[in-house]
């Protein structure tokens, strides 16, 4: 069957992560694992709208910031449990997404225009957060008041609970995308040619909005996790271009528009950048991000479908060779001429 191989990879990956997370590895490695899963999770959410539907957002950190700030502000102001805050953050992210996505899709914003609009939304959110100093602490940011380990308050002294939570979130996101098979096909068709998709009875706007809403909700939840885990946020870090680009990066390098692409991208990139940051970060700040940039450019030029496309490319090459041999022996000349 077609899906058996990714399914096997998914199961092995999940098991490996569970074992790794609970084995006696250094705390720092656990931190890298959590970070990897966070980006795999948010990259998977990004991928739904931007990979499958091809509406490239480079402003998704807006929704990370909304999720994070909603959670922390509700906790600081009215001591609302971060679990509820997380839900509220996700819902608020959906609200903001609808505000922008509806007109975007309604007015048929595509290609570069959609991307520019997404960046504008990110900048608006970032500027608003900076300017609402009373509530957000402005550009100085907010820190989470320390509480001893408490499940109800979503604060833990060890890494394991955070690991488990983000593992579950990641699992849910991947399984959700997996389950949405019909929608994935619709979104792909819309990405390829939205008029042709409409002519086949596919509702373009409905499916785009659906992908945007789920994407924003999941990323908003990711923002809530971010603030609970890092205990500190400021508008530039959580709502800036870095996170937005990283989400795109893990998905694209892994393989955008595929179920496991973002996860594979995160598994490769996040540890790499953390190792770079740890080893040469003090002498060469920014080196790990520089590597990101170079990898992105190289991937876009040489491997636009990402790492997951490598087996397919090899297979296609083999088939082409086999076909060449066939046509070569059968009909002379013909289709092999372009090789």
């Amino acid at each position: 069957m077609k899906f058996s191989k990714p399914l096997v990879i998914f199961i092995i990956l999940t098991l490996a992560l569970v074992i790794a997370g609970f084995s006696p590895i250094p705390v720092y490695v656990k931190h890298v694992l959590i970070l990897t899963l966070l980006y795999a999770y948010m990259g998977t959410a990004w991928n739904l709208m931007c990979g499958y539907a091809g509406r490239l957002s480079l402003g998704h950190s807006a929704f990370v910031a909304i999720g994070a700030y909603t959670t922390i502000i509700l906790f600081r102001q009215i001591t609302l449990s971060p679990w509820l805050g997380m839900l509220m953050g996700g819902l608020l992210a959906v609200g903001v997404m609808l505000l922008i996505a509806y007109p975007c899709f309604r007015f048929g914003l595509k290609g570069p225009y959609f991307t520019l609009a997404s960046i504008a939304v990110m900048e608006i959110v970032q500027n608003l957060l900076t300017s609402m100093r009373d509530l957000t602490g402005g550009s100085l940011g907010l820190s989470l008041p320390y509480k001893p380990t408490s499940l109800a308050l979503f604060q833990f002294d060890g890494k394991e609970p955070y690991f488990l939570i983000i593992l579950v979130l990641w699992f849910i996101a991947v399984a959700l995308v997996w389950k949405m098979e019909r929608t994935r096909y619709y979104l792909e068709a819309i990405r390829e040619d939205q008029d042709a998709a409409a002519a086949l009875g596919i509702s373009v706007n409905k499916n785009l909005i659906k992908s945007a809403v789920i994407s924003a909700f999941l990323v908003g939840i990711g923002g809530a996790f971010y603030v609970q885990y890092f205990r500190y946020i400021d508008p530039a870090t959580v709502g800036g271009f870095s996170i937005a680009l990283n989400l795109a990066l893990v998905a694209i390098i892994g393989g955008s528009g595929t179920i496991l692409g973002p996860t594979i991208g995160a598994v490769l990139l996040i540890p790499l950048s953390e190792v770079l940051r740890m080893t040469v970060g003090s002498q060469l700040p920014g080196l790990h991000l520089l590597v990101y940039g170079i990898l992105l450019v190289i991937t876009i030029i040489y491997l636009p479908k990402g790492i997951v496309s490598i087996p397919g490319i090899i297979r296609a090459r083999k088939i082409r060779k086999a076909n060449l041999a066939l046509t070569g022996s059968g009909i002379a000349g013909g289709s092999g001429a372009d090789e």
Partner: peptide, 26 residues
């Protein structure tokens, strides 16, 4: 002249910008 030129040039130039910024930072 390839497929998805618009989106790919945006991404590649975003990556390039990232390189320039962090080169300057280094």
């Amino acid at each position: 002249g390839k497929s998805e030129t618009e989106v790919n040039t945006i991404l590649a130039s975003a990556g390039l910008g990232y390189v320039l910024q962090n080169l300057a930072l280094m």
